[in-house]
Design a protein around this nucleic acid. Structure first.
Lengths: 213, 213
DNA sequence: ATTATTGGATAGTACAGCTAGCCAATCGTC
DNA sequence: GACGATTGGCTAGCTGTACTATCCAATAAT
């Protein structure tokens, strides 16, 4: 398969494919001569993975590169690859350790995690993300204690355990499992977010009294 | 309160405040002379709202402007303002109506919404977001039927009804209610997303056999 | 009187994610 | 074996976003 066919098959324009090759998001095709390279089904799969992380997960290219490197590293186990994806998904929340308010929010986040009995890396950036959300709720005078967030934690845990773990093909090759894990993380996150907003709209329509059509 | 104090009180640099004024995210201060304007507590609240939408909700400035215009429009009811926020949160998913696969995914999304009995605007962009997620799951061979997504919908609805509706101060002034509604949408979304990823990490740590510390 | 600050305006920066153009080597086709 | 089209590899340019920086004359504080 040449680059033009890869482009046609994936829907990604040739210049963009070239760009992904340069950026290391896509492995080079197999060189058959100085001006010809052969691409395969693996490249189509890889492009799908990249587009899913980009369009659904909204990850920046640099993060996608890291995730892909982890996916391709045969030495890494499932947990390590998932960790890489989580790091990529929790960006740009730089902690303000000098700020008193921030430290309180971060302590609240850590306390919630401890109370739930969850096993979370002490250095996980997700902790900072949670702290940021708690701080924001707090500043706007909305309930943001561990108690108030428990229903969210319970629902999240339930969905992960009951639904998401089961969709990972653990009996197949490592690559398939790892890809499903990474994409599942990203896409299920969006599914839940979208459905929550839809639920909100529906409830709002009834609650705030828009007449039934 | 002059601009330097507003900056100190909010933590937002003066040039950025000026930028927000230019962009219409922040109403101008009350002019007291040609080179002096007075800012008040409302400006601090408004800055908090903007930063929450920006940092937690990751909305682009242009979308924030629209949301704020809706918040400030006294003629709009709660449901309309929420709708504006939802439009702002569901960006950039342009529908490919020409694509057969896309139409199937979109039909599946619409069917799920109908089956759930939810009242959703037929033109809501959230429908396209859901279709995009379903299409992505589908292409990667993961379960993406309405059946498979029902647990997510149920959990989302439960959280919205049991928890989020209650945090909106309906007895106070319109502005407070509307702000809580908008910020709540954005921040609760992130809370749920973050907690889901934390639950995932915890489950993964146990499931994929990282030794207990 | 002097120094500092302010509001308003214009211009510049940094990064992200492409997109475009060029070029020589080679391929398919006649 | 001639020849137009395609390819890979390269460098450069473009568009959009969210700021920063600089300048200025008018005022305020001391």
């Amino acid at each position: 398969m040449r680059i033009s066919q890869l482009s046609a098959a994936s829907g990604v324009p040739i210049p963009t494919i070239k760009y992904y090759l340069r950026e290391g998001l896509l492995p080079p095709g197999e060189q058959t001569s100085a001006t010809r390279a052969e691409y395969g089904a693996g490249h189509i799969r890889r492009l799908r993975l990249v587009r899913a992380l980009l369009e659904v997960g909204r990850l920046p290219i640099a993060s996608i590169r890291k995730v892909i490197a982890a996916v391709d590293d045969e030495n890494l186990g499932m947990h390590e690859v998932l960790g890489t994806a989580h790091y990529a998904l929790a960006p740009a929340v730089e902690a303000h350790d000098d700020d008193e308010e921030w430290r309180r929010a971060r302590a609240e986040a850590d306390r919630l995690i401890t109370d739930l009995g969850w096993r979370i890396d002490p250095g996980a950036p997700t902790r900072d993300e949670l702290a940021q959300a708690i701080l924001t709720l707090d500043r706007l005078g909305m309930p943001a204690t561990g108690e108030a967030l428990r229903p969210y934690a319970a629902a999240a845990l339930d969905l992960v355990v009951e639904h998401e773990i089961g969709t990972i093909p653990l009996d197949g090759p490592r690559e398939a499992a790892v890809e499903a894990l990474v994409v599942g993380t990203v896409v299920h996150g969006r599914v839940l977010d979208v459905l929550r907003r839809l639920a909100q709209e529906s409830v709002s329509a009834r609650f705030f009294g828009v007449p039934e059509s």
